[in-house]
Design a protein around this nucleic acid. Structure first.
Length: 458
RNA sequence: GCCGGGGUCGCCUAGCCUGGCCAGGGCGCCGGCCUGCUAAGCCGGUGGGGGAAACCCCGCGCGGGUUCAAAUCCCGCCCCCGGCGCCA
């Protein structure tokens, strides 16, 4: 019984209940799960006893030579089957219910996760860079820094910068979300010229960085089956994020995390191969059904974008170190883009069901006057590996155990572009390209090198 | 998409026609014996679940069915290989 949630359910339910409370969830399903699991085990024993009876008779029949005796035994066997089938029906129903509840339970929360139900309670752990703060935002800037005891050096702007959406559509004119809305729907976009180069340069930059760190580049399937997806996300994510292909058991991926996790589905990994570091490269498709009217303008929150993703299969004892490694990698990438950021430890109420702990990396948006999420790094411990049956063979031991899975954004292109548009804009309407991207633009004659220039349109 | 062959305990493989007798063997791994050490050799273990334990149940791609009894027979689905068709 190695899955930590089931283990806790039976031996330490307090832990699960505390976890649920920390997530601002009703702990009722836990009590229900305990009850159903107990009843399931009780009934299972009864059924197994009858199965045993039946198995014994079956063996006797096989040996019996006398036709009369045979007949009698078969009658007896049928009698047992009648009883067995009745109980088995009940057991099956209970099993279905037990499965349903177990799969609905979120992961156990790590002790270092802050209390709180909304992102107001996310706790900043460190800041980097020198944000440009418009004088009208100084108060809210302090709310996001000083309130948490951080003294963040910043530059005060007299003029309010242009928002990323206006930069895109009105100043640079390198994006068109209005036409995209007409032909697809809102939250789609056309990107042109320099921003297309920028999109691909960002991808290459992240791919290059992660490869050097020993991550294996992976282009995964962009669609998955239901049962696979169910192993890596919770119902809420399913509802709000996932597009389905009509008349097929296929769903568009919301992130390459999902096909990467599934890569080792139903396998036993040799311990000597762990940790396995993967860098997923893919488009992502998201319904954003729960987003309402938030961030409707521009390309901050869109239905499709490109992303390089870090994903790791790790031994349980090393996974917490790996989480730190993943967020540090993301930080290095954002530093290279010269974007001021902070890292927050996400509070219990804002954790997704699979995550035991999550760091968000939030970049400062000078026109909006707030830090906004560009990167999210989670340790999902054994929540996904239990569902996908991904285990590892422990060296020197006999037992198998579930691996831990971790994931973190490296770079998501459209959102990163918005951060660049807002942070690196110049008074003349151009946008400065961070030097780190230079390498990935240099080989192409038509690609911009130092600045993104406004355009007159098609 | 059509036709044919196949999917067995970490890997390889036997069993399927002819239903019952722990799913047999090899490799790998773990433990023990032996040994100055290593190798070889020998013995045992090596999937999931329930049970305090003894022990029991389930497991041969997945799901149904037939039968007292299914890896084995029947039906549906998934996947792999070969051939044909289509195709960036």
């Amino acid at each position: 019984m190695p899955w930590s949630v089931l283990e806790a359910l039976r031996n330490n339910p307090e832990l699960l209940i505390e976890s649920m409370k920390k997530r601002c969830m009703d702990p009722k399903p836990v009590y229900e799960a305990i009850e159903v699991d107990r009843e399931w085990r009780r009934l299972l024993q009864e059924v197994e006893r009858l199965r045993h009876e039946h198995n014994k008779i079956t063996k006797e029949i096989a040996k019996a030579k006398d036709p009369e005796e045979r007949k009698k035994l078969i009658e007896k066997a049928k009698e047992i089957i009648r009883m067995k089938e009745e109980l088995e029906k009940k057991l099956k129903e209970l099993e279905r219910k037990r499965e349903e509840i177990l799969l609905s339970l979120p992961n156990l929360v790590h002790p270092s996760v802050p209390e709180g139900c909304d992102d107001d309670h996310n706790v900043p752990v460190r800041f980097w860079g020198r944000p440009k703060v418009w004088k009208g935002h100084l108060k809210q800037f302090e709310e996001q820094t000083k309130r948490w005891g951080f003294e963040v050096d910043h530059e005060v702007l007299e003029e309010r910068p242009v928002g990323h959406a206006d930069m895109l559509e009105k100043v640079l004119r390198l994006g068109d979300t209005y036409k995209a809305a007409q032909v697809a729907s809102s939250r789609f976009y056309y990107l042109f010229k320099d921003l297309v180069w920028l999109d691909y340069a960002l991808m290459m930059y992240a791919m290059d960085y992660l490869s050097k760190k020993g991550f294996i580049l992976v282009e995964p399937p962009y669609m998955l089956r239901y049962k696979v997806l169910r192993g890596v996300i919770d119902v809420e994510t399913f509802k709000d994020a996932i597009y389905k292909i009509e008349n097929e058991d296929l769903y568009l991926i919301a992130t390459s995390e999902h096909p990467l996790a599934a890569y080792k589905m139903e396998e036993i990994i040799d311990e000597s191969r762990l940790p396995i570091r993967l860098a997923g490269v893919s488009p992502c498709f998201r319904k954003e059904a729960g987003a309402g009217n938030r961030d409707l303008k521009g390309i901050f929150r869109v239905h499709q974008f490109h992303k390089v993703e870090q994903f790791v299969f790790a031994r349980p004892e090393e996974s917490w170190d790996v989480l730190e490694e993943l967020i540090r990698n993301a930080e290095e990438l954002i530093k290279g883009l010269e974007l001021p950021y902070r890292v927050v430890n996400v509070c219990g109420g804002e954790l997704g069901a699979p995550a035991a702990k999550k760091y968000d990396l939030e970049v400062w948006y000078p026109a909006q006057g707030r830090y906004r999420e560009l990167v999210s790094a989670s340790n999902c411990t054994d929540w996904q590996s239990y569902r996908l049956r991904i285990r590892y063979r422990i060296k020197g031991g006999k037992k198998h155990d579930y691996v831990h899975t971790l994931n973190s954004t490296a770079l998501a292109t459209t959102r990163t572009i918005t951060a660049i548009l807002e942070n690196h804009q110049l008074p003349d309407g151009r946008v400065r390209i961070p030097k780190a991207l230079r390498k990935y633009l240099e080989p192409f004659e038509a690609a911009p090198k130092e600045y993104i220039e406004p355009w007159e349109g098609v």
